[in-house]
Computed example of a mutant assay.
Amino acid sequence: MRALVTWLLLLVSLASAAADESRLRIGAIDAVLTVPPDIARPPVALLIAGSGSTDHDGNGPQLKPATLKKLSEQLAARGIATLRYDKRGAGEWKREFGRPEDFRFKDFVGDATALIDYLRGSGRFSHVAVVGHSEGGLVAILAAQRVPVDRLVLLATAARKQGDLLKAQLAKQLPPDKFAPIGKAIDDIMAGQIVDPPPAGLAIAPALQPAITSAFTEDPIEPMRKITGPALIIAGGRDHQLARLDFLALTTADIAAKSLWLPDMNHVLVDVTDAADDVASYNESERPLDPDLIDAVAAFISQK
C-alpha cells in the first residue's frame, strides 16, 4: 500500500509540474495561476486562505502546512485550474491597501470578488468555483452574495461568528480566571467598544480593534441560507479548531448542499492519528491532503 501511495504521489507531482504556473498582479493582489496542460477551457477554482497573514501557498509566519499549494497541485493533476493569492498582510502590508487600522473584513470579500471577476472575464475557463478554507470559507460565502459563482466549496469552515468561535477555543485552553477578562474583552470588541489596554493574552492594539470587530461579528449562517447555486461542505473529525456542530449548522443552512464528513481529517485537511500528530502536521508541508477530500472536491468542481 505504501508503494502505491508513493507512486500515486509521483504521478500527481509529474502532472502538476507540467501545469503552466504564472505569477500575476491583479490590482494590488499578488496571485499564482496554475493551468493544467492540453485542456482548452478547464474549470478554475479560486482558493481562499484561512485566517492570519496567509500567503498563496496557505502558509503563515509560524505555521507552514502548504494547504493551498497542495490543493492546487492535486486539482491541476485532475484537469482543474486554480488561482491562489496572498491575503492582505501576508509578507508585508502594501501601501495600496491603505492604513492597516482602516481595514475592514469586507475588504477581504472585495479582493475575492475582484479575482472572481478576473477569472470570469478572462474567457479562459468553462466555469468558476470558489473554494474557501477556514476563515476563507466565510469570505467565499460573502463573495458569492456579490458576484455569480458556479460552485462553492467550504473546507473546515465555521458556522459561528469569529469572535464567538475564538471565545469557545480559548475557554477550552485557559483556566477560568485567565479566560474571564479575555472573554469579556472579546465581547466588548464585538460590541464596537475599544478595550484599552487589552487584557494579557489578547494582543489586539486599540487602533486595530475596529478592524477586528468587522471580522468578529460577521455571521455566516444568514448569507449561507441565501446560497442558490451548488455547494459542497467538508469538515473533519480531528479538527481541534472546529466542532462538528459547525459542519451541521452549515449543512442545515443550505439543505441542498452536498456534504462530506471525514473522521480522520484535521483543520489543515490532512489525516492525523492523535493530538501530537495533529500539532506536527501544521508544519509538514509535504504531508498529503486527505485523498477523499481531493476526490470529492475535484468531482464537484468538474461536474457539468
Rank of each mutant, 00 (worst) to 15 (best):
M1T: 12
M1A: 14
T6S: 09
W7L: 12
L8S: 03
L11H: 03
V12D: 09
S13C: 01
S13A: 05
A17I: 01
A18E: 14
S22W: 00
G27M: 07
A28T: 01
P36K: 09
I39C: 09
I39D: 11
I39N: 08
L46M: 05
T54P: 02
K64F: 00
A66C: 13
L71R: 04
Q74H: 14
Q74I: 00
A76N: 14
R78C: 06
G79H: 08
I80H: 09
A81C: 03
Y85K: 01
D86G: 06
A90E: 13
A90M: 12
G91P: 03
E96S: 15
F97Q: 08
E101V: 12
F103C: 01
R104F: 06
F108L: 15
D111A: 14
A112W: 06
A114W: 02
D117G: 02
A129W: 13
V130H: 06
H133E: 06
S134V: 11
G137E: 07
G137Q: 10
L138Q: 13
V139F: 10
A140T: 10
I141C: 03
L142V: 00
R146M: 08
R146G: 01
V149S: 06
R151D: 01
V153F: 13
L155V: 06
A158H: 08
R160M: 12
K167V: 03
A168F: 05
K172Y: 00
Q173T: 01
P176Y: 04
F179S: 13
P181V: 07
I182Q: 11
G183P: 08
K184A: 15
I186V: 15
D187E: 15
V195W: 11
D196W: 04
G201D: 04
L208H: 10
P210E: 12
P210G: 13
P210Q: 11
S214I: 11
S214N: 11
A215V: 04
E218A: 14
D219M: 10
P223S: 10
R225K: 15
K226L: 13
A231P: 00
A231E: 00
G236S: 12
G237R: 08
R238G: 01
R238H: 14
H240Q: 14
L242H: 08
L242D: 05
D246L: 10
A249W: 05
L250P: 05
T251K: 14
T252D: 15
D254S: 11
A256I: 00
A256Y: 04
A257L: 04
S259F: 01
D264I: 00
L269S: 02
V270W: 07
E284D: 15
S285L: 06
E286N: 07
L293T: 05
I294R: 03
D295R: 13
F300G: 12
F300A: 12
S302G: 13
